[in-house]
Structure formats: structure tokens, C-alpha cells
Nucleic acid binder design. Structure first.
Lengths: 206, 206
DNA sequence: CGAAACAGCGTACACCTGTACGCCGAATGT
DNA sequence: ACATTCGGCGTACAGGTGTACGCTGTTTCG
């Protein structure tokens, strides 16, 4: 019952995932990545791959899911840190940017497959981004008392800005990344200010 | 001197470009697109490909360049239309979205290779987006009297929003695309309002 | 006119791909 | 203790890939 068998299986499964991530680090997009290569890097025979995933797409979806999950957990932690003081915008964006730096490979996969590959791939990515938006939207409604409509518009805008900024961080050093981070903070504040002005505008009209 | 030879060469060159664009329409990203397939669709022998491009990458860069050029020309036309009355934001975004709808294949390539493939590819894409930003930035400085700094922040933000929105249009029907267009207009107005508020804020401080 | 240039072709090669099939040996369940 | 399960392996195959090489027939140029 020790599950020594299941243990080993999980281990090689992880080896496959890591192998895929490593090869993603290079200049090769996920689609130009072969089952055989991944298996080779993971140290198993090509045919053993099928014991874990139906095909490469299933592996890719797993990567997307894991990436999204990790990001969400990280941001949730960040939000707790905020409750004990700190700028919501700054802390969130700094956390996000750090995440991108630490998980460049999978995050690149996420953005790259956002507009390519198979439908199921795209849907998975959209789902992850929607999670991000939904949590931000709820925050804006509950903590900042925005209307649902304005919060939705705002969170969608911010998501676009932040994810684009994340993509800008792929090939830059830490110094450059800090510059981008600061710029992004300013940009999100710009949006927040615009939303605030819009709210006031709407109030006056009634 | 009629250049009947050069004429023919240009014709098959275009055939290659069109073939690549057609195959891009499907669910295949550019990187999963083979020289042989493109040559086949263009109606020439695989080895004749080399008479026109060193390799597939060179073809891809050509596509990116052409796509960017067409977009710039279109937006310049749009701006002329604006000078004879019309909302700059609305007209620009509607034009942009129409362009994406008409050139889905190449625009998808543009966004996809923004964060993938070889360095030269990425640089080419960044260059195109920078063109877009620069023209917008100049407009904001010259016509709207923003400071260079605030104009730069604003144009970068808007570029992020608009290009992301473009990506959202890839797999949707015309109805959905109109919804996205309207949403994008609201989002850009949000940013414009935020920039306006920021400008006033800075003026008061001095 | 004759010679050079050159777009396009066909053949050929070495390489890589996904995956079907059957086997093995260790972990597991009874 | 024995039968079953199952992760991993090796072999094998058909198909696709990029591209080197040398040949054509037409256009171009002196």
C-alpha cells in the first residue's frame, strides 16, 4: 500500500513535464517540440510517453493548468500580504512580474498558445486569464465599491496591460524588468484614475 | 527590357507568400509550417523555394513586414478621415479591428511570434508595434498637447490594449467582434480619461 | 547572333517524426 | 503463493523533413 509503483509513475511524469519546460526555455515554441525529444530528455523510451499522456497536446494543457494554478496561489498570497498594509497595485504587479521571471517557460507557453494551436489549448489559456480577471473584478466591487459593469471593464483592461507587460519581460535582464514593472504600475494607476473619474462622472449625471 | 523574367519571379514569390498565408489560416502556427508544404501549395518544386528565400524564417519576416506596413498605411488613411471630423478613438479602433478581421492570418503570426521563435523575428514584431506607438505618441503630443512623458505612457498602454483586443478577435464572428470593438473603445477612453486626470493633477502641483 | 544568367525541376540522401506491437520484470491484490 | 496489473523497453515501419547537386529551357545582354 506504500504505492511505490504510483510514486515512481508520478516521478517520471514530473520528469516529462520538466523536460518539456526545459526545452521550452530555448527558442523553440511548444508546437515545434517533439514527443521523442521530450522523452529523450526525460530519460525514457519514446513509447513510454503514452503511459502518461495521450499526446503532446495533453502535456501542454497540463503545463498551462499548472502555470495558471501557481499564479493564482501566488496572487492570493500577495493579497493577504496587502491586507496588512501596502499598495494593492504595487504588490500585485511586483508579485506578478516576479512570477513571470521565475516561470518564463510556462508563461511564454501560456501567451504563445493564447492565439494559436488547437481550440482546447486556447480555451484553457482563456480560462486562466479569466480567473485572473474575475478575482480582480470581485476585489474592485467588494473593496472599492465599483459597479459591476465598471469593475468588469477595468479588470479586463488591467489584465490586458499586465499580461502584455509580462510578455515584455521574456528576454530582458533584471534591471530592465524593474523598469517595466514600474512602468506597468504607472499604467495601471492610469486606468484606476480613469475609472475613478468615470465613476464620478456617472454619479453627477444621476 | 520588359523584365518578363523579373515579372515572373515576382509572381511566384507572391505565390509563396500567399501559400504561407493560406496555411496560416488553419490551426497551424507558423513554426509548424514546412517549406515543402508551402512550395507545394505555391505550385513549385521544393528546391525552387531557395530561389526566393534563404529559409522559412526569411519568408516569415517578409510576412511580418508586409503586415506592419499595411496596418500603418491603413491607420494613416484613417487619420486623414478624422481630420474632416470624427472621433479619433472610435475611427482608429474600428479601422484597426477591421484590419485584423481582413488579415487574421498575418496578424496572428505577428502576435504569435512576438514572444517566440528567433530573436530577429521578435525584433521585427517589436519594431512594428513601436511604429504604432510612435505615431500615436506624436499625435498626443502635437494635437492634444500632452507632455512627451505622459504621451509615451499613454500610447504604450493603448497599444497593449488594442493589440490584445486584436488577438481576442481571431476566432469570433462579426457580431462578437463588434462587441469587442465597442468594449475596446470604452477601455481606451478610460485610459484617456485617466491621462487627462493625471495631467490636471500635475498642473495643480506646480 | 552567341554566350551567360537564372528560375525551376527531379533525384537522392540522411535524418527525424509518431506510433503499433509484443515482451519483460517488478509491484500489487487475492 | 500465485495470477494480474502495468510502467518501461526495443524493434519496426511508413511517412515527412531540409537541402545538395546537376540538369533543363528560356530570357537577357553584349
Amino acid at each position: 500500500m506504500a504505492g511505490i509503483r504510483a510514486k515512481q509513475k508520478e516521478k517520471t511524469r514530473q520528469a516529462l513535464i520538466n523536460a518539456a519546460m526545459n526545452q521550452l526555455n530555448a527558442e523553440n515554441g511548444f508546437s515545434s517540440l517533439s514527443l521523442r525529444e521530450v522523452a529523450r530528455e526525460a530519460g525514457i523510451a519514446p513509447t513510454s510517453f503514452y503511459r502518461h499522456f495521450r499526446d503532446m497536446d495533453e502535456l501542454g494543457l497540463t503545463l498551462v493548468d499548472e502555470c495558471g494554478l501557481a499564479l493564482r496561489q501566488l496572487l492570493r498570497q500577495a493579497r493577504q500580504r496587502i491586507e496588512s498594509g501596502g499598495s494593492i497595485i504595487r504588490v500585485s504587479i511586483e508579485t506578478f512580474m516576479q512570477f513571470v521571471a521565475d516561470n518564463t517557460a510556462t508563461f511564454r507557453l501560456l501567451l504563445q498558445e493564447r492565439s494559436g494551436r488547437s481550440r482546447s489549448f486556447r480555451l484553457a489559456v482563456v480560462r486562466e486569464i479569466d480567473h485572473f480577471k474575475a478575482e480582480l473584478e470581485d476585489y474592485l466591487v467588494n473593496e472599492q465599491s465599483f459597479t459591476r459593469e465598471l469593475a468588469e471593464l477595468q479588470s479586463d483592461t488591467i489584465a490586458k496591460i499586465v499580461f502584455s507587460a509580462g510578455a515584455d519581460c521574456f528576454d530582458v535582464d533584471e534591471e530592465e524588468r524593474e523598469i517595466i514593472t514600474e512602468k506597468t504600475i504607472l499604467q495601471v494607476r492610469l486606468v484606476a484614475r480613469g475609472a475613478e473619474a468615470t465613476r464620478r462622472l456617472l454619479k453627477k449625471q444621476t
